[in-house]
């Protein structure tokens, strides 16, 4: 089919440069992506370097480096790191338990279904669920209080850093379970047997074989989890109502009303988020290349 077309072409218009008309087929998609994804994103980039009069300036970027903004970035990154690493660790242990831990098969099916639901159960309803659980009159808070443990007097607060982390974990670790389970399935029994056969212990197996093999998947999933909480707005907004100084919350407030009194700074703030996401993906690529030399 293709070769036939090429065969006909010289007869018709021998002198025209070759255009691959097949690209036309994907134009609607590219056009849409340009209009509603690329253009908006790059307009923020442009906006970050413009003042209110539309003149070029570095001021917006410079203004990012104030304690207030830097702290909000720091807090956002901390929440993302804690929930990414925590979610990855806990999710890994659970995935390990159902894939290789010798548990009954139905548990795995059940866990996969739960994880599919829980990883999608986020935003406002999730915040409500945690308020009902660990809020000031939440079920767990009340039960613990009746046992003589007042967690709010011990310093816990659902609407603060650790409360937010605990809430985010609800969608973080199920995502880890979903992504890492296939990788754990990929660990072949023969590798463990070969290791034992050569005199190696369980520790040798994990240290030299299983973990190195899993590293690329672990890195990529952790980065994914990081991005997952880094950009999260709905859950944090519904839970803390804006009392926590997270970057997405500040951007949201900036859109609602001019809280920063500086639109350009808002754009720079958003640009900073994209840069940090981009940097983490770049870091991921580098780590990935180093960890997966042995992969095709």
């Amino acid at each position: 089919m293709k070769s036939k077309q090429q065969g006909d072409a010289p007869l018709a218009r021998p002198s025209l440069p070759k255009i691959n008309w097949n690209w036309l087929g994907v134009m609607p998609f590219f056009l849409f992506a340009l209009l509603f994804l690329i253009l908006p994103a790059s307009s923020l980039f442009v906006g970050s370097f413009q003042d209110n009069q539309g003149q070029f300036t570095f001021n917006n970027i410079k203004n990012l480096f104030t304690p207030y903004i830097l702290n909000s970035y720091k807090l956002t990154i901390q929440v993302s790191l804690v929930t990414a690493v925590g979610g990855a660790l806990f999710g890994f242990l659970m995935a390990y338990a159902v894939t290789l831990g010798g548990l009954p098969r139905w548990l795995r099916t059940a866990l996969t279904t739960f994880s599919g639901v829980a990883s999608n159960f986020a935003g406002v309803p999730l915040a409500f669920a945690f308020i009902s659980t660990l809020g000031r009159v939440g079920l767990v808070t009340v039960i613990l209080k009746s046992l003589g443990i007042n967690i709010y007097q011990q310093g816990f607060n659902l609407y603060s850093f650790w409360g937010l982390c605990l809430t985010y974990m609800y969608f973080q670790f199920p995502l880890m379970v979903l992504i890492i389970s296939p990788s754990l399935d990929g660990l072949r029994r023969e590798w463990r047997e070969a290791c034992e056969n050569l005199g190696g212990s369980s520790w040798h197996y994990w240290r030299h074989v299983a973990l190195p093999i899993l590293t690329p998947a672990l890195i990529s999933t952790t980065i994914l989890l990081f991005g997952n909480s880094f950009g999260a707005y709905a859950t944090a907004y519904a839970l803390t109502g804006g009392s926590l100084n997270l970057v997405p919350i500040i951007i949201g407030a900036q859109i609602r009303g001019d809280v920063l009194h500086d639109t350009g700074l808002g754009y720079a703030l958003a640009l900073g988020m994209v840069v940090i996401m981009g940097a983490s993906i770049l870091g991921y690529t580098v780590l990935q290349n180093r960890a997966s030399r042995w992969l095709r």
């Binding site: 908006p40 994103a41 950009g231 859109i255």
Partner: peptide
């Protein structure tokens, strides 16, 4: 992130 997209 969605928050950045909506801003743009």
């Amino acid at each position: 992130p969605a928050i950045v997209l909506v801003f743009g």
